[in-house]
């Protein structure tokens, strides 16, 4: 690291020299074929290397879309399985099957039982350890033709539909930031961390 910082300091001097060379190159090139314009050679970052621009909390709010298993990051909103079923049929069933049984894309619905050698299902009910993951993935990535197009309410509704279809929550349950974070998935403890310690 300290080596790199020394390099950074040296590069200031070097970049001044290379700037001159670059200008000369441009002249030569222009003379030969009439081409003009070349990238300006920016001075290297200083030893302090403060090229990042500070962000305000309002700026960060526009970027931050992380949702954690404990519910941190979940937006306001609500949705029910009944509402979600309608959205699912319109936007998801074509690839995932009419009832989440899978199609050109993976199956989503299985019983609420962890996987076993007889039933090595990786569908939501049997495999997914956290319900918040459904919300996060649907909101950022689905549907593939228009990711990010579902509102928070619609995303809660689709999440509720998928959880109810997997018999993890009752058909009548409403999902919101609080109730979704409280859902305990059947396979919560089904994972062994390998290359990082808990």
């Amino acid at each position: 690291m300290s080596m790199l910082r020394c390099v950074a300091a040296l590069m200031i001097a070097v970049s001044v020299a290379s700037l001159a060379v670059a200008e000369e190159d441009t002249r030569v090139k222009g003379h030969i074929d009439g081409a003009h314009g070349s990238a300006a050679v920016e001075p290297a970052a200083s030893a302090n290397m403060r090229l990042g621009t500070p962000l305000t909390s309002d700026d960060i709010a526009k970027w931050d879309r992380t949702i954690f298993p404990d519910g941190r990051g979940l937006p306001p909103g609500r949705g029910s399985a009944k509402e979600g079923r309608v959205i699912y049929e319109q936007k998801c069933a074509r690839c995932h099957g009419e009832h989440g049984e899978g199609g050109t894309s993976e199956e989503l619905v299985s019983g609420p039982t962890p996987p076993s050698p007889d039933n090595p299902s990786k569908a939501i009910g049997s495999y997914w350890p956290y319900a918040t993951t459904i919300f996060d993935f649907v909101r950022r990535s689905m549907p593939p033709a228009a990711p990010g197009s579902l509102s928070a309410d619609e995303t809660y509704a689709v999440t509720a539909y998928l959880l109810a279809a997997n018999a993890i929550i009752p058909e009548s349950a409403e999902m919101n930031a609080e109730t979704l974070a409280a859902v305990r998935m059947p396979n919560r403890d089904g994972f062994i961390w390998i290359d990082v310690k808990k």
């Binding site: 962890p114 996987p115 076993s116 050698p117 090595p120 990786k122 939501i124 495999y127 997914w128 350890p129 956290y130 993951t133 993935f137 089904g190 994972f191 062994i192 961390w193 390998i194 290359d195 990082v196």
Partner: peptide, 16 residues
């Protein structure tokens, strides 16, 4: 979680 994890014969899955 759903992907890039490896289900073992025990029913547990390798993660990370």
């Amino acid at each position: 979680t759903a992907k890039y994890t490896e289900l073992l014969p025990s029913g547990k899955a390798r993660m990370f």
